[in-house]
């Protein structure tokens, strides 16, 4: 089936089965491989993207349900001032180890700071607890979120 998607501000047409998760449309059909596959069951958060600004697990989101909503991925989130600030903080704090989960972490953090510009520890925990980091960079993730929100590291 043909679907017309709005991804990172661009209109993209794809011809895929309607049950194909958005994750695989992004990765295999459109070549946007920044969004990562970790589990396929919304357990790890590696595939987090924004749909109309809300953090969503792309691995369980069938493409047919996306409709005309605006999708933002890690490749496009830097065009958003909050996203750019989060990416900068990730670099300043030197968050990643292997780095594989960090696209999803950055998408979740950007959604958090957009909705809540000065989150406290509890708000950070709540927003980020669905994003696993196998290297356990959680200490620096938290520091980077605080830095991006102007609350010091």
């Amino acid at each position: 089936m043909a679907f017309t998607l709005t991804i990172n501000g661009e209109t993209r047409s794809v011809e895929v089965e309607g049950d194909t998760p958005l994750l695989w449309v992004l990765r295999d059909t459109l070549g946007l491989v920044g969004t990562k596959f970790g589990c396929g069951a919304a357990q790890c958060g590696a595939c987090t993207v924004h749909i109309d600004g809300a953090p969503v697990r792309a691995c369980i989101t069938p493409v047919r349900r996306v409709g005309d909503k605006k999708v933002v991925t890690i490749e496009g989130v830097g065009k958003d001032p909050v996203g750019a600030k989060v990416q900068d903080a990730w670099k300043t704090i030197d968050v990643p180890q292997c780095g594989y989960c960090q696209a999803g972490q950055i998408m979740s953090a950007t959604a958090l700071l957009t909705a809540n510009p000065k989150p406290d520890d509890a708000a950070i925990d709540e927003a980020m607890n669905g994003n696993l980091c196998r290297c356990a960079t959680y200490i620096r993730i938290k520091a980077a979120i605080k830095a991006a929100s102007g609350q010091g590291a």
């Binding site: 920044g34 890690i74 990730w90 670099k91 780095g99 594989y100 696209a103 950055i106």
Partner: peptide, 11 residues
């Protein structure tokens, strides 16, 4: 680091 935080293919 730049590639990781902007989702460029590295893995």
């Amino acid at each position: 680091l730049d590639a990781i935080v902007t989702g460029q293919p590295v893995y």
